[in-house]
Amino acid sequence: MIDKKTVEYVANLARIELKEKELDKLSGQLGDILGFIDKLKEVNVDSVPPTSHAISIGNVLRDDSLKESLPVNKALSNSPLKNGSSFIVPKVIE
């Protein structure tokens, strides 16, 4: 189950601002969904390995050879805010 505080905490991790109304609605819906998901608890998964990839392949590697980079103007072409050849964001305070 999931309470409002948890939803708020998780929304913060996901960097999503929720309005109070959204928060209420989401908490209820996520509760329903998680209740449904809890069905998985009835499966015995002892000694079952996890599957992260649909197809079992491995050791996919490329050679260390140069490819052309994007021209700077193209790299920045979608930028909401830029300065010369850099992207700009509100000041980061460390």
């Binding site: 998780v10 991790l13 989401l26 996520l30 499966v43 079952v48």
Partner: peptide, 30 residues
């Protein structure tokens, strides 16, 4: 999108990973 991102963030988050995400990967195997 918000619903799914928040659900996905939750199932990966500390304390819930094993119960949700890891378990799901195992049932995926089955």
């Amino acid at each position: 999108a918000k619903r799914r991102i928040i659900l996905g963030t939750f199932v990966l988050s500390h304390g819930y990973y094993d119960a949700y995400y890891l378990r799901a990967l195992k049932v995926r195997t089955l």
